[in-house]
Design a protein around this nucleic acid. Structure first.
Lengths: 236, 236
DNA sequence: ACAAAGCAAGAGCAGCGCTCTGGTTTGTTG
DNA sequence: CAACAAACCAGAGCGCTGCTCTTGCTTTGT
């Protein structure tokens, strides 16, 4: 089943087109002034429509933000997948490091969008179901690397995990197709949090007066940290 | 030199008192509706003053947020310091784990304040200098644990660190009094990012459909992860 | 040919941050 | 004690926001 049916009437085509324009303009505003400053009225003004007309295409501000969130997840996911694909399949460590670099590169290039998806969620906001698939693209890449490593390499005996923790990650185990032992899944989660913890700290200003400001310093620092994380994954 | 001189006149006393009331009411609003929804007018209403009167005590909304940020850092810092103090000095691992638990406990109890200080910063916002001291209380606790461990325990030979990374963390080295080798400082940074990465993921909803929702599962998962982090610190 | 559905435009409501004006209170000084 | 400047308060007002409702017009499927 196709996710979107072909536009039969001119009206449907126009509707899709206008919705696209709204999304594009909104993304421009987002990258310039941040999510908090995004205003439906300003978007309408830019598009030469009156403010009320926007509500024909977007039910409200929150849902516009949701569309931008999905967009951001997909943009990040596509970049990361593309970067990771360029690496030789057997070079597991390099695949991991390339993935981390790609996430950071995207985040530095799209700080507001990064903040939108990995920063504080808006107060009453609950992520709708449409976001969970795009949101899992990066985790999927990481898990694939782990699976490849685990299935090919020598498998050290898995460290046993407490039952409570083991049941806690039942969903994650299912997501990975049951191909990974619990302790490796947990290491993967640790790597994932470390990756985003490091990027968030850098992007949200918590490295001020801690790690030198220059971009080469920041990159070297990040590199080093991710190599450390890779050690924890037994990738190095 | 005292940071605040004694209030001589009734007016000065009233001023301080009213400013305090404004801060308290603002904090109530923050914990209830989040930073984005915090409104000077609403605070004024709660206090029975007209909206313009607030500007006698607070220059603008941003500076009110800054005061709340400082408050939040101090609240977190005080809780963490208190918790960490209860542990036997020689039990370095336990001191570390207790610190992590204290951070998480505070974060779960004050999610909006956590989001305010560790979530996405407001677009044009630049943290003023007044925040850096309160912000470094938690890092200071972690570094003290590392110093105690390093100075007492057997010191494994430090892994050499690339020069670029070494110069990148010059500020951090200074902050730690030069008592720690670079590789341990870097492990400490990794632990710090992991800690906040883990808490941010949990608080900002990125563990949905990954780690089971129940608070005991979440706690067990967090415990496990922090023990893992401690291994990276060679604390375990 | 015609009703139904989709559309644009404008007015309007309640809220926001912030400023300005005019009038009052307070503390200090001649 | 009187005079005066500084600090205070209340209110009106500006321009912005999200969102709704009403009024007409146009496109669409029957």
């Amino acid at each position: 089943m196709p996710t979107s049916t072909a536009p039969s009437t001119a009206r449907e085509r126009a509707r899709i087109e206008i919705t696209q324009e709204i999304l594009n303009t909104a993304r421009d505003h987002l990258t310039k002034d941040g999510a908090a400053a995004l205003s439906l009225r300003a978007v309408a003004r830019d598009l030469g429509m009156v403010s009320s007309a926007i509500y024909r295409y977007v039910p409200n501000r929150d849902s516009l933000l949701t569309m931008l969130i999905i967009d951001a997840y997909d943009s990040l996911g596509a970049d990361v997948e593309k970067a990771e694909r360029t690496v030789r399949r057997e070079a597991h460590l390099e695949r991991f490091l390339t993935t981390c670099q790609a996430v950071r590169t995207w985040a530095l290039a799209h700080p507001q969008e990064y903040a939108l998806i990995y920063g504080s969620p808006v107060p009453g906001y609950a992520a709708p179901a449409d976001t969970i698939v795009p949101a899992s693209r990066v985790p999927a890449v990481l898990i694939t690397i782990l699976i490849d490593m685990h299935s090919r390499g020598r498998q050290p005996k898995p460290t046993p995990v407490e039952p409570l923790v083991s049941t806690a990650i039942a969903d994650l185990r299912m997501f990975s197709g049951g191909l990974l032992p619990d302790d490796l899944l947990l290491r993967g989660m640790a790597a994932w949090s470390s990756l985003f913890g490091a990027i968030s700290f850098e992007l949200f200003g918590h490295l001020h007066n801690v790690v030198a400001d220059g971009s080469k310093y920041r990159k070297a620092y990040f590199d080093h940290q991710m190599r450390q994380v890779a050690l924890g994954l037994r990738l190095g």
